[in-house]
Amino acid sequence: MTDAIVLSNVSKSYLDFSLSDISFSLPKGYIMGFIGPNGAGKTTTIKLILNMIKRSGGRINVFGLDNQKDETEIKLHTGVVFDSHYFFEEWTVKEVGQVMALFFSNWQPALFERQVQQHQLPLNKKVSQLSKGMQLKLMLACALSHDARLLILDEPTSGLDPVAREELLELLTNFIQDGERSVLFSTHITSDLERIADFITFIHEGRLIYTGTKDDFVSAFRLVKGGLEDLSPEVKRDLISFRTHSSGFEGLIHAEKIGLYPNLFAEDATIDNIIVYTYKGSKTHESNH
């Protein structure tokens, strides 16, 4: 058993949205960035993994176990962080620890206390009195006080300042040091992932666009720039999408096609570039129909 999470052809249909045929696997010991524009289905996928919503089709395994049949066993070893906290706001930090201890038989009070101290969380303050960054740290402290082998983070960095984000990245890289623990990290702030993610899964409008190593993902595309006169019909055809401005254009192209246009200036695409131009590409594609 080497995969922390395996999704095989997972789907979920709603009236106005459907997630279809999502497959990816996160090997244990690594960090996977889960990306896509808002509304792409990231949170839906995470809720499916946690069995908060039921899949319409496919299979989900966590630690090699079925996520519905062995739900409690999986959750015992999974830490979850959402974009906003899930505690009762009237609880104090101390009470949050007491409630967590009720549910997690592997809860380590000493570890929780140490983390609370480390993050300078005031034990007797209510959750509602904590800043957003503090609330995130409280969720992390909870996630890390019960011997989690998998961390699932859903947009944890939205609303965090750069210092707090850097601290989070440090924490995650520490978390995977032993090679046994893994992280699934959903975010739309991709600079967080640009560096530490080992794998990327990119979904868009409920469909899987890419899953694989981050290096392959980034090197599969090039960002090209040129003057407006360089934007020939062939170039336009081969670009995934582009934008023009008064002095030229910028667009995204598949790396293998860049050889066809040696006169164009090309550079490494960032994850953001790829998301933005892929998104734009799908929109123009739609409007052409």
Partner: peptide, 18 residues
């Protein structure tokens, strides 16, 4: 009502209990 006001369903969704 307390659970509804406090994202309690997320909490429920995370804990290892049936």
């Amino acid at each position: 009502s307390i659970e509804e006001k406090n994202n309690g369903m997320r909490f429920i969704g995370m804990v290892p209990f049936k």
